[in-house]
Nucleic acid binder design. Structure first.
Length: 519
RNA sequence: GGCCCCUUCGUCUAGCGGUUAGGACAUCGCCCUUUCACGGCGGUAACACGGGUUCAAGUCCCGUAGGGGUCACCA
């Protein structure tokens, strides 16, 4: 039975790299009929935890990564917040103290820091001489009399090696001598991460610890703790981190300014901002960031596309196959095929996967996804069925030009008459092209007299108009498109006009012609 | 600086001793076309370097270089 976990600290946001770690854990649990557990690592939290975990849980729900045990769903190992498990942590510390694997220490932080700095300056690694270690109750009392506060430190081995068997890295060996006597409990009795993490993993019966590689250096001390406590080792797998776009450093939420220098990343954010502003979304500067999953939800990405893209970041089945449904991911995923090197986050590939994923969905599914955006952008009235029918027609006609739900905001011209003209194109194709201008003006009259206004009828009418005028379609169609939509590109012209409607088409052509003459 | 990890096209990757080093995204060209997108066809583009081992090395070993992670009374 496999039990995996993802243990975020309550930061208020879900990092895209964290999602990948969670996905791999989730996949592992799901394929083996095991459990995926969510635990909140909030031992150091001073903020409102509920407020800070809610965005994370929302992210998981949106992505469809369900958890078998954890916040809100509960489970047999409650509680699932580290801060509420301090009794267990303290008991473990007492046990370590009793067995001699830990000791009470009275060094002041600044004293140790000074030693560390000296050691580093000398080019060696710091080894605490345990000068303030309390060997008995007497020495402890003496240190306390000096006004020192006692913490509990690990009494790490100083010879031999720690051998870690890692499912993605193989065997990793580390000399114990290089390890520090880490503090596991503060003077006020509260416990630190490594101790808490090991105890909780044990209590929650976690069998596989799958986490990002920045935890690899932490592993020896955690192994020391768990073996001292008599626990069985879990299986370890350290995943490479997700690297920044076009770089090799770890992707970080805080380096947004730097990533903006990457064109693809900047374009992605710009696209998001465009959608957000058109929809009147208030974007939280803290989370409206492509490093954070909220960003993708906000602008209409498809959860499955995020998952599929992340799956491919550091893992491959055979180097050929790239599209996976969730059941297929569950079926095929193995830690053995996870890469060892960091994979850089590529906004273009993400967008490509998103586009493919969205296009593969049914019209109904796409309409459903688009409604909130169209509604907020004021281009459709959710309460009116004819408005929704129209939206459906548009979504069908737009086809794969819609890469993500939020892209619908670019088709506002179909619904609102306040066109935003592409001035350069308007100047060239209408103002600067007198024959075309006269022709579309004349065409407006014929279009206005049609009995029906569907795409086929419009096309026939325009074709015969061209024949009668002895011009080619391409001589007028650009002017026609700009006059009626304001922009130079879109889906089929005749379908576009059909959606816009007869009266509005005629009015828009006249308005554009007038506008060009006036300017 | 110590310790640890990593290194195949620009990016994600396939490759587990013998390949014209494959695929995808991106990019470039052509075709399709009323625009854009899609689609089709084709092109450019990679084994970090140096030593070994071997008949044979992207694949194994050892170095070097480069990149990265981590060194808290954070998680």
């Amino acid at each position: 039975m496999i039990r995996t976990r993802f243990a975020p600290s309550p930061t208020g946001y879900l990092h895209i790299g964290g999602v990948r770690t969670a996905l791999f854990n989730w996949l592992l649990a799901r394929q083996a009929g095991g459990q995926f557990i969510l635990r909140i690592d909030d031992t150091d939290a001073e903020r409102n935890v509920h407020e800070a975990i809610e965005p994370i849980l929302n992210g998981f729900r949106w992505l469809g990564l369900d958890w078998d045990e954890g916040p809100e769903v509960g489970g047999p190992h409650e509680p699932y917040c580290q801060s509420q498990r301090s009794d267990q942590h303290r008991r473990a510390v007492d046990q370590l103290l009793a067995s001699g694997h830990a000791y009470r220490d009275f060094a002041r932080p600044e004293e140790l820091q000074a030693q560390r700095d000296t050691a580093q300056a000398a080019g060696g690694s710091f080894v605490y001489d345990r000068a303030w270690m309390a060997t008995d109750a007497e020495s402890a009392a003496r240190f306390e009399a000096e006004g020192r506060a006692g913490v509990v430190r690990l009494k790490m081995p100083r010879e031999g090696q720690c051998v870690i068997d890692d499912l993605v890295r193989g065997e990793v060996r580390v000399d114990w001598a290089g390890e520090q006597d880490h503090v596991i409990q503060r003077a006020d009795g509260s416990c630190l991460y490594h101790l808490a993490s090991v105890v909780d993993d044990h209590d929650l019966e976690i069998t596989h610890v799958v986490r990002a590689e920045e935890h690899l250096p932490n592993t020896p001390r955690q192994i020391f703790i768990l073996e001292s406590l008599g626990y069985q080792r879990p299986v370890y797998a350290h995943l490479p981190y997700v690297a920044e776009p076009g770089g090799t450093a770890k992707l970080s939420k805080r380096k947004l300014a730097k990533y903006l220098k990457n064109k693809d990343f900047a374009d992605l954010l710009a696209r998001g901002n465009h959608i957000a502003s058109t929809c009147g979304l208030t974007t939280d500067a803290d989370t409206f960031n492509p490093v954070i999953v909220d960003f993708y939800r906000e602008i209409g990405f498809t959860p499955h596309a995020i998952l599929n893209y992340l799956l491919l970041l550091g893992w491959s089945l055979d180097g050929e196959r790239e599209k996976f449904t969730i059941p297929e991911m569950i079926e095929h995923f193995t830690l053995g095929r996870v890469n060892r090197s960091p994979a850089s986050f590529d906004p273009q590939k993400l967008l490509s996967v998103q586009g493919d994923t969205f296009a593969a969905q049914s019209i109904d599914a796409r309409v459903e996804a688009v409604i909130p955006f169209a509604s907020r952008a004021g281009i459709v009235d959710q309460t009116k069925t004819d408005s929704l029918d129209c939206l459906r027609t548009v979504v069908a006609a737009v086809g794969d030009r819609l890469k993500l739900a939020g892209d619908i905001v670019d088709y506002g011209y179909l619904f609102t008459d306040a066109l935003i003209y592409d001035e350069v194109a308007f100047q060239k194709k209408i103002t600067g092209d007198e024959p075309a201008r006269l022709l579309i003006s004349k065409l407006a009259v014929s279009l206005g007299s049609l009995d029906k206004f569907d795409a086929a009828t419009i096309e026939a009418a325009v074709q015969s108009f061209c024949e009668a005028e002895q011009v080619k379609l391409k001589q007028i169609i650009h002017a026609l498109r700009i006059a009626t939509t304001g922009v130079t590109n879109g889906f089929g012209m005749f379908e576009t006009l059909a959606v816009i409607g007869q009266k509005r088409t005629v009015d828009r052509i006249r308005a554009a012609v007038q506008r060009s003459v006036a300017t």
